[in-house]
Simulated assay, not measured.
Amino acid sequence: MPYPDKLLADDEEVVVHLHPHWATLFWPVVWLLVVVGAGSYTAALVPAGRQQGVLRMALLAVALLVLAVLVARPVLRWRTTHTVVTTSRLLVRSGVLTRRGRDVPLSRITDVSSRQTLGQRLLRSGTLTVETAGEGGALVLETVPDPNDLQALLTQVMDHEVDRLPEEDGSLATW
């Protein structure tokens, strides 16, 4: 799904739009399989009788509550977390009910660094730290897919942003 155009300036284009790495969905998928399997098995063990329907409904309610906490919440959090690099800024948006956002103009970025553990290197994920000039402080993006590629892309886009600044003859270089 493309990033909403209403958040972009007229001369701004999306370079890359990312969600957190897919590995953040590993445990929710495991919990989904465990809860559905255990719930089905337990429902089959409910003895026949007048209370069978009530007991199975209670079991279903507990299973749905567990699924909401262990599966739906992390999946929604993953789905509503966006890291967007445009031709002029870095946008970070997250949150389901309470939305948080931060926009960093590329001209304010002073340093971009990445960190990966061995496991993250195998999965091609990691942490990207973006240092900015000003009072906002560093922006730490965890579980980013391909952090080295994103670091290189940010550096490339920042170089193009510098090229777009007004030149001495008054014209603008193009992206």
Results as ranks from 00 to 15, higher is better:
Val66Ser: 11
Arg50Ser: 14
Gln51Cys: 14
Ala133Pro: 00
Trp31Asp: 03
Val29His: 13
Val69Ala: 15
Val112His: 05
Leu76Tyr: 15
Thr155Val: 10
Gln151Asn: 13
Lys6Trp: 10
Arg115Leu: 15
Glu131Pro: 03
Val85Thr: 07
Val84Lys: 03
Trp27Ser: 07
Gly101Trp: 01
Leu33Val: 05
Leu91Ser: 00
Leu65Gln: 04
Leu25Lys: 06
Pro74Val: 10
Ala138Glu: 06
Val30Leu: 15
Leu8Pro: 03
Thr83Leu: 02
Leu64Arg: 05
Thr127Asn: 02
Thr81Trp: 08
Leu118His: 12
Trp22Arg: 06
Gly39Lys: 03
Val144Met: 07
Ser113Cys: 02
Arg93Ala: 11
Thr80Val: 11
Ala68Ser: 13
His17Val: 06
Ala138Trp: 04
Val15Glu: 09
Gly37Asn: 13
Trp175Leu: 08
Val30Tyr: 06
Arg79Thr: 10
Leu150Arg: 01
Ala72Arg: 05
Glu142Tyr: 00
Glu135Trp: 09
Ala38Ile: 12
Asp146Cys: 02
Val104Ala: 11
Val162Arg: 15
Leu32Ala: 12
Asp159Arg: 12
Arg164Ile: 00
Leu150Ile: 03
Leu90Cys: 05
Val29Gly: 11
Trp22His: 06
Thr117Ala: 09
Thr155Asp: 11
Thr127Lys: 00
Val140His: 02
His19Val: 02
Asp5Ser: 10
Thr129Cys: 08
Pro47Lys: 11
Trp27Gln: 07
Leu141Gln: 06
Gln120Lys: 05
Ala138Phe: 03
Leu65Ile: 06
Gln52Asn: 09
Ala48Gly: 13
Thr87Asn: 00
Met1Val: 13
Ser107Asp: 14
Val15Arg: 06
Val112Gln: 01
His21Met: 05
Asp163Trp: 11
Met1Leu: 11
Arg77Pro: 01
Val112Ala: 06
Gly49Asn: 12
Ser40Val: 12
